Computed example of a mutant assay.
Amino acid sequence: MTPRLSLRAVTRRFGAVAALDAVSLDVAPGEFLALLGGSGSGKSTLLRVVAGFEAPDSGTVALDGADLAGVPPHRRPVNMMFQSYALFPHLSVAANIGYGLRREGRPRGEIADRVAQAVAMLRLDGLESRRPDRLSGGQRQRVALARALVKRPRLLLLDEPLGALDANLRERTGFELRAIQRESGAAFVMVTHDQAEALALADRVAVMDRGRLLQVAPPRELYERPATRFVANFLGAANILPGTRTADGALDCPEAACTLRAAAPVPPGTLAAALRPERIRIAPATGDNTAAGTIEEAAFRGESSLLLVRLPGGALIRVSHAEEDGAPPPRGTAVRLAWDAEAVVPLAE
Results as ranks from 00 to 15, higher is better:
Arg4Trp: 02
Leu7Ala: 00
Ala9Gly: 03
Arg12Ala: 10
Phe14Glu: 14
Gly15Ser: 13
Ala18Phe: 08
Ala19Glu: 06
Asp26Ser: 04
Ala28His: 04
Pro29Ile: 08
Phe32Trp: 12
Ala34Arg: 04
Gly37Phe: 14
Gly38Thr: 15
Ser44Met: 12
Leu47Pro: 00
Val49Glu: 04
Glu54Gln: 14
Pro56Cys: 08
Val61Leu: 02
Val61Phe: 03
Ala66Trp: 09
Pro73Asp: 02
Pro73Phe: 05
His74Val: 01
His90Cys: 12
Ser92Tyr: 06
Val93Ile: 01
Asn96Met: 03
Tyr99His: 11
Gly105Leu: 13
Arg106Ser: 11
Pro107Tyr: 06
Arg108Gln: 14
Gly109Phe: 10
Asp113Met: 12
Ala118Phe: 07
Val119Asp: 00
Ala120Ile: 04
Arg123Val: 01
Leu127His: 02
Ser129Gly: 07
Pro132Lys: 04
Arg134Cys: 05
Arg142Pro: 00
Leu145His: 01
Ala146Ser: 02
Leu155Ala: 10
Glu160Asn: 11
Glu160Pro: 06
Asp166Pro: 07
Asp166Trp: 11
Asn168Ala: 13
Asn168Pro: 04
Glu171Gly: 02
Arg172Cys: 04
Glu176Arg: 00
Ala187Pro: 01
Phe188Asn: 00
Phe188Leu: 05
Val189Asp: 00
Val191Met: 10
Asp194Arg: 08
Glu197Ile: 00
Val207Asn: 04
Met208His: 12
Gln215Asn: 11
Val216Lys: 03
Pro219His: 12
Arg225Phe: 11
Arg225Asp: 13
Ala227Tyr: 10
Arg229Tyr: 10
Phe234Arg: 09
Gly236Thr: 15
Asn239Ala: 08
Thr244Asn: 05
Arg245Lys: 14
Thr246Gln: 06
Thr246Arg: 06
Ala247Glu: 15
Ala247Asp: 15
Ala250Ile: 05
Ala250Ser: 13
Thr259Lys: 07
Pro265Gly: 04
Pro267Met: 14
Pro267Lys: 12
Thr270Leu: 09
Leu275Asp: 06
Arg281Tyr: 11
Ile282Phe: 09
Ile282Ser: 10
Ala283Met: 12
Thr286Ala: 11
Gly287Asn: 09
Asp288Phe: 09
Gly293Asp: 04
Thr294Glu: 03
Ile295Leu: 05
Glu297His: 15
Ala298Val: 07
Ser304Ile: 06
Val309Met: 00
Leu311Ile: 07
Pro312Lys: 03
Gly314Glu: 07
Ser320Ile: 07
Asp325Pro: 07
Gly326Gln: 14
Ala327Arg: 14
Pro329Cys: 04
Val335Asn: 08
Arg336Ser: 15
Leu337His: 09
Ala338His: 14
Ala338Phe: 14
Trp339Lys: 13
Ala343Trp: 10
Glu349His: 08
